[in-house]
Computed example of a mutant assay.
Amino acid sequence: MRRPVSIGPVAFDASLWDEPITGIGLYTHCLADALEARGVRLQRLGARVSGEDPRGRMGRTAYVLGRLPRALRETEARLYHALGNFNLPLVRTPGKPYVLTVHDLIPLSMPETVSRAYHWQFRLWLARSVQVADRILCVSACTRDDLLARHPEVSDKVTVTYNGVDHVDRHVPDATAEAYLRTLSLPSRFVLYAGSLDVRKNVGLVLDALERLKARGRQAALVLVGQSWFGSGSVESRVARMRSEGHDIRPLGYQSEQVFYELMRRATVFVFPSRYEGFGLPPLEAMRLGTPAIVSTTGATPEVCGEGAPAVRPDDAEGLAEAMDRLLQSDAERRRWAEAGRKQAARFTWARCADETLAAYEAALRR
């Protein structure tokens, strides 16, 4: 365990602190907890209502570009850590090094998955942010390689700092969550997908696999947990059609953490055939909880899940159907992959993430 550090207070990007917990918001909370456990004092800047400088009704972009530079000039914090891919102020703040976390470059590599306005915002702001940053943390080697392919000039300040996954250990369902889960009357065996329903997540491949299984008389129940996102309308329409045709598909929308992780524990198999991930946390969470996961062969998912999960190509509906069927039908297969998954997931802890983040802080302060 790394010794506690005394680098002084850190100004910490809290722009998603008060929002519903999704990917970057989860990273924000878990990293903050792990840093504070190391003795780091954080000043949370830019949250909607909490922290040292809440932005109130001001939008996140307006806050970073308009008010954050002044807040950084006035704070005693020694550096600022932005957590959202590109959201650094456009100019340096004298005496305040900048650290930036980049999770993925999907709006650039897959522009069809975001709005045109967001694509250009991401492209232009990222280009400036990597120039003003003193250290850049990428959550996988895959993301690092994507970043350096576009910005090779920043290679000397980029490091890979993996996410943790052990946050799932502390989540157990409360009475309200248990009561809700009982109302679902879930079957004894079901497939779970968790994430947004956009094109990149490739939920359509899961639906293709369900249709193949049903054609063989192997109908499987599917539970979908996640919110609508840009381009999710076609998936939602197809789900409605398939339900009318007799498929057991249960779209539950966004769920609390207690419900979400209990569904992961109860699932027979977790599927995540995303076309691209900068890290790929949901399958790793399932693996940590002992649920076999099926993942994609693309993006950072093979790097993160390694030998802990079977992988299929993101266009291989037949391969996904066969992998799902094996895990649904075979107790031995599920035990084998559950054990392999737990072993792989144990490598990823928030304590390790915090230690590597602290090393980046120290390097930024030395520049």
Rank of each mutant, 00 (worst) to 15 (best):
G164Y: 04
S188F: 02
E356L: 08
T298S: 15
G39Y: 06
V172F: 12
Q258L: 11
D134V: 12
L205Y: 09
G341A: 06
S330E: 10
I136P: 12
L281E: 08
S188W: 02
H151E: 11
V223M: 05
R218I: 07
Q255G: 13
T75Y: 02
A321Q: 01
P89M: 06
V269H: 00
W229I: 01
L192M: 13
D316Y: 08
L263Q: 06
R212W: 00
D325S: 08
S155K: 15
R265L: 13
R123G: 00
C305H: 00
G278D: 03
L284F: 02
V191C: 03
E257W: 01
M58N: 01
L105G: 08
Q131F: 00
I24V: 15
D325E: 12
P283R: 00
L328G: 04
R238W: 11
P89E: 13
S237M: 13
V132Y: 02
E52S: 15
K201E: 08
L126E: 09
Q344A: 12
L88M: 12
L207Q: 07
L181Q: 11
L210A: 11
M242A: 10
F348C: 09
Q43R: 14
C30Q: 14
L45E: 05
T159S: 15
L83Q: 14
F12S: 06
L205T: 09
E362P: 03
A175F: 00
L252A: 04
A37M: 03
G253N: 11
H119C: 11
P292W: 02
I24Y: 04
L16Q: 14
P302R: 09
V168T: 15
L42Y: 00
L224D: 02
P111M: 05
R38K: 14
R2P: 10
A77V: 09
D18A: 04
G226R: 02
A359D: 15
R250S: 05
R342L: 15
G59W: 07
R170E: 13
E285C: 04
G25N: 08
S232I: 12
T28H: 06
T22W: 12
T159I: 03
R313T: 13
V168E: 10
L68A: 13
V114R: 10
P292D: 06
A360D: 01
L126W: 02
S185Y: 05
N85Y: 07
P94V: 07
A286T: 03
F86V: 11
L289Q: 05
A141L: 02
R92K: 15
G39T: 10
W229A: 15
L105F: 10
